[in-house]
Design a binder for these strands. Structure first.
Length: 264
DNA sequence: CTATGATGGAAAC
DNA sequence: TTTCCCTCATAGC
């Protein structure tokens, strides 16, 4: 589920496995052969995530590996021996101990420092940054005439939110996704940001998105997947708070889910 | 087993 | 506005 939490979790795991280690790099699929050759044998210097973007730096070259998983990319690894190469394997990295396979990414490329700077410059504040800049994010929302459900998905406004966090955050604060962002009270936006930081940090820790409060789940203990969300992908099912059927519509080219009673 | 749609975003039209 | 990336969880047979 590659929203921002997935990328930050991945950066943490990749960093622990690769930083300080030399990697062998190959592109069995054939679409990143030159890039793989450029990093093959080099030592990984740093791994970081910005919004939904992953950056990997290497000793000895100025370029940075940039990965964006898109809608269905995966980057998974484990202890050697590596599994047999299968299907469209864009990039395989191995150390003496571990393998990491990248499949189906939207972006897998080497960027020079200027391109990295341009990439970061077009991203809004990341709730998962070490020092999240809520004031800047709220300022961007307050200037936006677009529906808040659309503005939240704009990576130049907030970096790392995807369709699940959008729907769930708006539900938790009783805000209709179609409401113009600038009409949402400042105190609501501030509460939303603080909540978003908490939710996404929990998402990094758990490796999944859980937004329901315990009292709104059908059972106690660790929520099952069908108990983890208030509205996301629950079209027609009863709202966990008021019982009204959850609605769906298209907003920012994606399905948005909301409760018309709880969110106004 | 196959069919479907999905958490995203850039490029092509 | 449409296409593409070509994975993976889930639903249905």
């Amino acid at each position: 589920v590659p929203e921002g939490h997935t990328l930050h979790r991945l950066a943490r795991h990749l960093g622990a496995a690769l930083v300080g280690h030399a990697v062998s790099a190959s592109s069995p699929q054939g679409r990143f052969v030159d890039g793989a050759a450029r990093i093959d044998g080099r030592t990984v210097a740093r791994v970081s995530a910005y919004g939904k973007h992953l950056l990997v730096g290497f000793d000895g070259i100025a370029e940075t590996l940039h990965v964006h998983l898109g809608l269905y990319g995966t980057f998974i690894g484990g202890a050697l021996p590596a599994p047999p190469v299968r299907g469209a394997l864009r990039l395989r990295l191995t150390t003496e101990e571990q393998w990491w396979d990248l499949r189906g990414p939207t972006a897998c490329e080497l960027l020079d420092p200027e391109a990295v700077a341009r990439l970061l410059a077009r991203l809004g504040p990341d709730p998962l940054a070490r020092r999240p800049d809520g004031a800047a994010a709220i300022e961007r929302l307050r200037r936006s005439r677009t529906p808040i459900g659309q503005a939240l998905m704009d990576q130049a406004v907030v970096a790392g939110i995807g369709n699940v966090y959008r729907a769930e955050l708006l539900f938790r604060h009783g805000v209709d996704p179609h409401r113009p962002a600038r009409e949402v009270p400042a105190e609501t936006l501030e509460a939303m940001w603080a909540d978003l930081v908490r939710l996404m940090r929990a998402g990094v820790r758990a490796g999944r998105i859980v937004t329901t409060r315990p009292e709104h789940r059908s059972r106690r203990g660790t929520p099952r997947r069908d108990d983890a969300h208030y509205v996301y992908r629950r079209t027609g099912e009863p709202c966990r708070v008021c019982g009204e059927p959850v609605r769906t519509a298209e907003l920012a080219a994606r399905n948005v889910y909301w409760c018309a009673t709880c969110q106004s």
